[in-house]
Nucleic acid binder design. Sequence first.
DNA 1: ATTGTGTGTGTAATCGATTCCATATTAATA
DNA 2: TATTAATATGGAATCGATTACACACACAAT
Lengths: 329, 329
Amino acid sequence: MTTINDIAKMANVSRTTVSRVLNNNGYVSEDVRKRIMQIVEETGYIPSLSAKSLRTKKSGVIGVIIPRIDTETASRVVSGINEVVAKGNFQILLTDTELDKQKEIEYIRLLQSRHVDGIILLATNVNDQLIATIKDVELPFISLGQDLPGVTSILYDDYHASVDVTNMLLSKGYEKVAFIGVSEEDPSVGRLRKKGYVDAMASRGYNFDESWIETGDFSIESGYEAMKKIIKNSRGELPSAVFVVTDRMAIGAMEYLREQGYRIPEDMAVVGIGASTMSRYVTPSLTTVDYFNKEAGHRAAELLIQQIKQKKEAEKFVQTYRLIKRDSV
Amino acid sequence: MTTINDIAKMANVSRTTVSRVLNNNGYVSEDVRKRIMQIVEETGYIPSLSAKSLRTKKSGVIGVIIPRIDTETASRVVSGINEVVAKGNFQILLTDTELDKQKEIEYIRLLQSRHVDGIILLATNVNDQLIATIKDVELPFISLGQDLPGVTSILYDDYHASVDVTNMLLSKGYEKVAFIGVSEEDPSVGRLRKKGYVDAMASRGYNFDESWIETGDFSIESGYEAMKKIIKNSRGELPSAVFVVTDRMAIGAMEYLREQGYRIPEDMAVVGIGASTMSRYVTPSLTTVDYFNKEAGHRAAELLIQQIKQKKEAEKFVQTYRLIKRDSV
DNA sequence: ATTGTGTGTGTAATCGATTCCATATTAATA
DNA sequence: TATTAATATGGAATCGATTACACACACAAT
């Protein structure tokens, strides 16, 4: 590998001058600049970013921590992040926790040791150790999708989206709305979305059966199983609609209903959240909520880059959402 | 940030000794080792990987170049790669070309300057400049999905998969098989898959109309448009089946057929490639080919890590595939 | 003639690790 | 007892960049 010293020698100047040319600062005569640039071209020299990073404490890399890449939500977010950071000549160092909470913390440390300029975290849970670690690393930090105290967070409006969905169902005359959620360890998807449902039901004076509420684990299969349980448990009084907090689980639920010969939406309406590509192409097409994941990624990246440029107070941003009405309701 | 020097000072030893403890090599007394470890714990010290990388010429990072993250194929591959490299304590530096050929080359250079230990490339095209660049960087390198001369490549068996799909359709009595492909600039998806179709048709003695062949750009919409064109162009003699080289485009084609009131598969059978999640949940479920993308990712990562450990000659590996028969045929 | 300012370039310290080499102590072997 | 080997530690060079500081020169202003 050619180094800055090699270039300097070949151009008969000091490495300082070469550095000046490369970084476009300080005074350099046009003559020398040209000579150096030519040698750089010829040799195909590329500066070592490890060395640069060691010296400048900046890496041009931003760390992204996600629970799983192979979900549409995550890949959309990452795509959004990438579009923005690439413009700022940053790269993404991607880490995937595979839903392991402990790894969220480990990876924050790891990214710190790699001198990333900032971190975007898609957390699946919130706990004190996590918050403490984030504080401790003292890096520009964005939480996407979970409200982390003291940390700039970009939030989906889980509560209101959930209220809207439930109200929409109630308004359409589906009085008996079942619910498939996820573990309440996940404050956004688990707790808030459920709270929205519960509150909306209560405020409209509908009482609902506990047996209408089931929990899945984000997978299609778990949606299928949850639907099965709901049907099994509620013999006698079948719900007329089911609100599922993710599209994938909703697809699973639909699958079960289809298998059992229930018509959607005549026998049971189904609503999901996520606006997955699939939701549009299943039959019947699935009513869902678009969370604009890619835009959230954009936003996160923009905010992070701002923070990298100058430190800021923690802020909270709530993304808009949009109810997409389709044929499953 | 605490550095190795701080630790050394606190423990009253030289930084050499600290380094020995941290890297578990050379002789260190149990006494000193414990003392150092305790201080490391207390301070939460993490070694600077930039410094380490500068000195050792290894970064523990592997570069991944993909055409788009927000496709199921790519995210599965990345997930597969991640599962393997994470075990070896590597991280992924992700770059997304957004289908820009020139960026493939740029990113190889960039990753080189970041001292990645190796690169996995999901190329969309093959050209001399690309090959030359790969040769030039002299890094462990894996091409996934395209056969790059002189480069270790993991290949999907596009040709035979395509032959099989076509034969399967012909055997089932669909004699008039239309085809929706992509640009032949993409040797694997564009050229090989088409060749498989053409050869299979020819070898069975079926002649086919050029008007049955259309080209899309991987998007669902382009599949829709291609299907529309085929139907429009072939008035009089409608094909009885359509072989679409990606699931997404196949879904688009199905959408058009449904809209126009054609029954699938009675009026027109449809086959895709990719085994996307969607393919299973659309109605009718889509017959497709599973390319085992995640496993391909595993394989790529394993090979890369092997190559990082010791340089090897370029090899070619062909992945298996599996025809998944569903209701669209 | 002197001082100041804008240019242009180089010397050397620095970032935080690893590692070669030297040295000291202790234990084992001849 | 002398010699060798194993164990334990430190000094200093090194990786490849950036940057504070110093210096030299040209030209304008005083």
